[in-house]
């Protein structure tokens, strides 16, 4: 029988906790912030390559460029960053604010799609993922399948208003650009302007919404994107969860 007193217990607690942290640090396992290393494809022709689907809002365009070998000027051009912006340190989650008036969302999901197709990596595009017109132009110069070409033709957006202001000192509403030949999202699709009331109108119950939010739903007139920003959440994550509920409801 082994008796253990408080002093030895103290020693063992300290050794196990700090020893464990020290050992994991030495092995390179200890990380208290995002490592900025996406997961890799585990099967198929791209096995072993970084998977753009694992890109997060905290990644910068510079990191995306380094990881995936997409030239930084191409990324900056594709997402129409204002010339005064430092593209290398521009975080993907900031893209949503670059297109505040867009009727569809340009964000992390758009970068994932762009990078994957630019590099010829397998990636299943979601129906509600859109790209700026310049990103579409760049991709159309790459070897794409006819299905991908078709997708791009219907998922293109105009130039962000902020860029236009910065570069041409004119403010052309995005909605106008969208209505002039590019795609408008169908009904029952969450966009940057969708309110909780619209989700309710599409047949999702308040209880279901609150389950996704993990708390009480705000006023129905609240714009979902604004709510996500206030709560410090990624709009794209919230949108995906709510859109799944909408898709389950028969129109």
């Amino acid at each position: 029988m082994i008796r253990l007193g408080s002093k030895w217990l103290t020693v063992l607690i300290v050794v196990i906790l700090f020893g464990g942290v020290g050992l994991s640090s030495a092995l390179g396992w200890w990380a208290t912030e995002n490592r900025k290393v996406p997961s890799r494809y585990t099967e198929g022709e791209a096995a072993g390559e970084y998977n753009p689907a694992d890109l997060r809002g905290s990644y910068t365009l510079g990191e995306v460029s380094d990881l995936f070998g997409v030239p930084l000027p191409i990324l900056a051009e594709a997402f129409e960053l204002p010339a005064t912006t430092d593209a290398a340190s521009y975080q993907l989650k900031s893209l949503e604010s670059l297109y505040p008036d867009a009727s569809v969302e340009i964000g992390v999901e758009s970068v994932r799609l762009f990078v994957a197709w630019y590099k010829g990596l397998p990636y299943e595009a979601q129906a509600d993922t859109y790209l700026p017109a310049s990103a579409v132009r760049i991709l159309q110069s790459r070897p794409l399948s006819s299905a991908q070409q078709e997708y791009l033709a219907s998922h293109s957006l105009g130039t962000p208003a902020s860029t236009q202001v910065a570069e041409t000192q004119q403010s052309t509403p995005l909605a106008q650009a969208t209505s002039e030949g590019t795609h408008t999202p169908s009904d029952r699709t969450i966009t940057g302007k969708t309110t909780f009331q619209q989700v309710l109108d599409w047949g999702v119950s308040q209880a279901q919404i609150e389950q996704v939010l993990g708390k009480e739903m705000p006023a129905p007139t609240t714009v979902i994107k604004d709510y996500a920003t206030q709560q410090g959440q990624e709009f794209s994550t919230l949108k995906t969860a709510l859109q799944a509920l909408i898709d389950q409801v028969q129109p």
Binding site: I16, V21, A31, T32, N34, R35
Partner: peptide, 11 residues
Amino acid sequence: IHESSFILMIL
């Protein structure tokens, strides 16, 4: 949540 939380959980 990061690797550190996971390691502390194991410890």
